[in-house]
Design a binder for these strands. Structure first.
Lengths: 208, 208
DNA sequence: TACCGTAAAAATGTATACAAAATATATTAG
DNA sequence: CTAATATATTTTGTATACATTTTTACGGTA
């Protein structure tokens, strides 16, 4: 596993506090490597929103920002239905079957962590999106999900949402399977909107 | 000027042919630096679409891809009107004045290069977008523009579009100044759509 | 001749050492 | 005692040297 992923996981798990400033030398010692690979990892983590520039020098762990989440979900609401619609005429039994398998995994395994649930959620939508054959759009959506990833530990933290989300996934898949594309686009939009609102509200309660 | 910018300019000017594979050692010698800063620059250029991964190792200058342009403009059509709308109630005389100044510069100076025109175009919209006070949305839009930047040399190459674009800018600014927000959003959407179609068509003629 | 395995070459990844820049600290003038 | 400037320290940026991996080329075998 690359250093980038190690640091990302530690950020997900809250090993570094929001607001904390990270020094290359510290990280190099912590992960037992030199500063060169640390620099590479930090640059990438920065481009994905896991870290923010700090003054003229160094990077910091960003604070949780409800406005950032709102922006991310506003974009997702507008781009993901588009991509899904572009995939409509490419969908077939095999793809939809894979999607259904992922939903099954989500339901049958009760001991999944928030991060694992988030990863499976993404895989579900991604296997549909990928079918569109639009690499640029797909990469942009993937990037938005990576940025949201910083917060998803908190999304499932609010328990009970998982059930709602899961039934929405099933309805969505049914619409796709039945060829009701416009309905599926609306469902997806609402699905994203709901998740976003849920997350923003939860973050706002945290800062009270 | 940083190495990142130097290489980017050379990519804009076509110093490296599309499809060409770039080696760190060659670039290091070419720009008279070591491979360390080259690696940093390549990573960033890759994240912005100026370079693509090549196999398991190395980077290549991407080919011109009409489908990529189409995707970028589809996203811009959906996100930029949103950001502009969020800026509506923050606009004031000073901001709109700055925007008008930029349009004036575009009209009065006849000897601007395609790259300079592209930069001014962006500054025009950016000074409106920035007013919204939505850093995440702004950063995403900025990123999309950077990715489009790889093609803009060709956008103004097709001469005659500049006049159309310029009058669209004026109409848009008039709507904003008069407080007709929804109309401005539609105008912006059409403005982006027109530019995108123009560019895609031009690229398709190139590959015939 | 085609194919596969191995060795040589080339390119990237990483560590160490040094240079430049930025921040913190101390010192002195007002 | 405050503020400004100079100095010291810390941190990042870059060069050089070495390790690892990937690719390429060669030679042997079926």
């Amino acid at each position: 596993m690359g250093l980038y992923e190690k640091i990302k996981i530690d950020l997900q798990r809250g090993r570094f506090r929001p607001g904390e400033v990270l020094k290359q030398a510290n990280l190099a010692e912590l992960y037992a490597v030199s500063r060169i690979p640390v620099r590479d990892a930090l640059q990438r983590l920065q481009s994905e929103g896991w870290l923010t520039p700090h003054g003229k020098r160094g990077v910091a762990v960003p604070l949780f920002d409800p406005l950032e989440v709102e922006d991310l979900y506003l974009m997702r609401m507008r781009i993901e239905p588009l991509l899904q619609t572009l995939a409509l005429n490419k969908l077939n039994g095999e793809i939809l079957g894979r999607a259904r398998d992922i939903l099954d995994t989500l339901e049958q395994d009760p001991g999944l962590s928030a991060v694992q649930i988030g990863a499976l959620n993404w895989q579900f939508h991604a296997c549909i999106y990928r079918a569109a054959g639009r690499p640029t759009l797909f990469a942009a959506v993937e990037q938005l999900h990576r940025q949201c990833g910083r917060y998803i530990g908190y999304q499932s933290g609010k328990l009970g949402y998982q059930n709602t989300s899961q039934s929405e996934h099933h309805h969505l898949l049914d619409s796709l399977q039945a060829g009701r594309g416009e309905e599926a686009a609306i469902q997806l939009r609402d699905h994203i909107e709901g998740a976003g609102k849920q997350l923003v509200n939860y973050l706002r309660t945290l800062s009270e």
